[in-house]
Amino acid sequence: MITLHQVTLVAGSFVLRDVSLEIPAGSHTVLMGRTGSGKTTLLEGICGLRPVQSGTIRIGSVDVTLLPPGQRGIGFVPQDGALFDFLTVRQQLSFALDLRAWSAERQKMRVQTLAAWLGLTSLLDRYPQGLSGGERQRVALGRALSFQPTVLCLDEPLSALDDDTRSEVCAILKEVRARTGITLLHITHNRFEADRLADRILFLRDGHIEHLTQHS
């Protein structure tokens, strides 16, 4: 479970004040709201990419408010994927494993598993410049999942994709959740995408979580 208690975040002159919410473990929660409502700021706060001015953020029973991003166990997929253009797909998938000093054999097995799962096996030696939009997002997803995080934060990962590719990545996201039981927090503007994937929809309006929709 992700628990935010009266969290205040600042992004330039924008202030997101006293946000409290609970995201159940294993849920796929979609966060919606107008452009500039603070969705990305909130996501950055949870990921540790933006300092929390006040309040606390807990993941499970651990208070992560002051922990650096890499120690929170959160995978992050930004809108454009933000792939490292100097690494092959294989190197992107093993980047976090290398940082954790996994053995070469263990890294290889994990990369093969992820690649097979995400349909990246034939692309492992390609660089991002040679990938389509959908392929790039699948690599970004694989990279974020590689170190087996407990939470996956997605910032409009499907917004730049065409309808067919979007459906394909939606199916992958459903499978990710089914296979890993990971907690997903997902920002989108697309109501169809939210209805298709989410079991909870949150609306961020005027700096406050205003409306909740619970899907059965």
Binding site: G70, P78, A82, A96, A140
Partner: peptide, 18 residues
């Protein structure tokens, strides 16, 4: 350079220097 790449690296386990 897209600062998101650096931010993603931080979430993957890098410290600022890495």
């Amino acid at each position: 350079l897209n600062p998101r790449q650096e931010q993603v690296a931080l979430t993957l386990g890098c410290n600022r220097s890495q």
